[in-house]
Amino acid sequence: MSELLLAMSLLLSVVMVGAALVAIQPGRSLPIIILSSGLVSLLASVQYLLLAAPDVAMTEAAIGSGLTTFLFFFVLSRVRGGDRG
């Protein structure tokens, strides 16, 4: 049981770091960047659950990965054409 949790935590960490690296790559398009930062938040909420913090996990899932991503997309839809450089 403990080994399973450990492996899960390790896997989550690897995917989180990978998604974060994608999210700061200069060449990627903005929707992909925003989605990967949302993915980092979503996996962080699973990580909180493994760390015995269900309250924080709920907050991160609802606020960090849900509402933040939508705020980014609302602003992104207003600033089309400004993505140079």
Binding site: S41, Y48, L51, F72
Partner: peptide, 25 residues
Amino acid sequence: TNRNMLRMIVGFVIASTGVNLVMVA
């Protein structure tokens, strides 16, 4: 390192997620 402001904000969001993760751990 990014010059685009939206990309900079994404960087800030990722850093704050990291801070929260450290504190819970």
